[in-house]
Amino acid sequence: MQGVLHGGVGTGVGSMPGADPREAAAVVNGELDLAHLAELPQRGAGADMVGRMAAVLVDMPMDAGTWGYRLAARGSAVARRARDFVHADLDAVEELWDTAGFIGTGRVFKIQVCGPFTLSASVELPAGHKVLRDRGAWRDVVASTTEGIIELVDDVTRRLGAQVVVQLDEPMIGAVIDGSVRPLTRFDTIPAVPVNDVAQSLAGLVEAVGRPVIVHSCATPRWDLVERLPAVAWSLDMSSPGPADLDGVGGLIDRGGILLAGVVPSAGGDRRVRAEIVATGLAELTDRIGLGRKVLADNVIVTPTCGLAGATPGWAKDALGVCARAGELLAADPDAL
C-alpha cells in the first residue's frame, strides 16, 4: 500500500503561515513534487489542527468556546467555519492543478488530519471530561475519524484525480500511552491507553481507509508503537536523534518502511541551511546507523520540523524548497554526498 510513497523527495508537514489558501497552495505546489493540502491555523477557530476535525468527523458535531473544543449535540458555527476552510483550501488546489494540467494524472497528493488519539486528548465530552477519559467515547472518535477520512479522500480523488496519501497528526500519542495527558482538574484522572490498544485501533483505521498512511509526531518518537504498525510510514523529528532513535530508524528502514525525516528548521530563516548540508546530514545519519546509502533514495523523504505556520512567508517558501532540493540530491547519487 505504501508503493506510491518513496524516498528521494521533499514534502511539508502541513501547516503554513498566513490566511490566504491560494497563496499557500501556490507555494506548496510550486516548490514540492509531493505536494500537500496546506493548513492555515492563523485563520482562527476551525482552522487549527483540532478545529479542522469539525469538518471531518461524521455524526460527531463539535463546538468551540473559551474552554476549547467540545463534542456537541448539533452543528455549530465553528463546524461551518471548518468546512468552509477545507472547501476553500481544496478549491485553491483544484484551480492550480487544473491550470497546470495535473488533474487526472495520478499525481501523489497528501492530506493531513488530526489523529484520533490526539483529538481525544484535546476535546471535551459534553459532560465536561476529556474524551480520552471514556474508553467508549475515544473508540467512537476512532470510528468517526475513519469514516470522515474516507469521505475526504473520496472528495480529493474526485476533484484532483490524485493518488491520495493520508497523514495522521498525533503529537500527543506518547502522552496517551504513558497516561500523562493533563486532565481538566486534578481529580479528573485520565487512564493510560495501552500501546497495543493504540496500535490495534490505528491499524484498523489504516485498513479501512485503504490508502497509504503516514503517522506524524513532533514529540519524542514512540518506537514501541512504530514497531507495532509496520503498514504505515512515519514522520518524525530527526533534527537531534539520540541513540534510541538511531536504533528505531534502523529497524524502520531495515523492514522497508518509509521515514519522513524532519530536519529542515521551520523557524529562524537561517540562510545557511542549504539542501547540500541537509542531504549530507542525512547521509551521515545512515552511516551512523550502518545502513547503505541507497536507502536515502528509496526510504527517506525530507520535511521541515514542526511549526512552519509560525515562520515568515519567505522562510516557509525557502524551507520547502530546501526540502525538495535535498530530496533530489538523495535520489540522484547518495553515495556522492
Rank of each mutant, 00 (worst) to 15 (best):
K110A: 11
L125R: 14
G210D: 02
M53C: 07
L205H: 06
G310W: 10
L229N: 02
G290R: 06
A121V: 10
T99D: 12
T220E: 13
A26K: 11
E328L: 13
L90S: 06
G262R: 09
L152W: 04
D155C: 12
V153T: 13
L330R: 14
L90N: 01
L71G: 00
G269I: 07
V198A: 11
V195P: 05
S76L: 02
Y69R: 07
G115E: 14
E147I: 06
A192I: 11
P17E: 08
D155W: 03
S266R: 12
C306W: 03
R139C: 04
Y69K: 05
W315T: 02
M16D: 02
A311C: 01
P265Y: 01
I301C: 07
M49W: 07
L337C: 14
G256E: 05
M49E: 03
V56C: 09
G262Q: 15
S144Q: 01
P183C: 08
M1E: 08
A19V: 15
A233T: 05
L5E: 04
W138T: 10
A219K: 10
R222I: 05
P191T: 14
A100E: 11
G106E: 08
R274T: 15
A64L: 00
S239E: 10
Y69G: 01
V181P: 11
R80N: 12
S217P: 10
L337H: 14
A311T: 03
A297Y: 06
A45T: 15
V198I: 03
G161E: 02
G281E: 11
R80H: 13
I258M: 15
A319H: 06
L202T: 15
G128Q: 02
Q42R: 13
A35S: 13
V166Y: 02
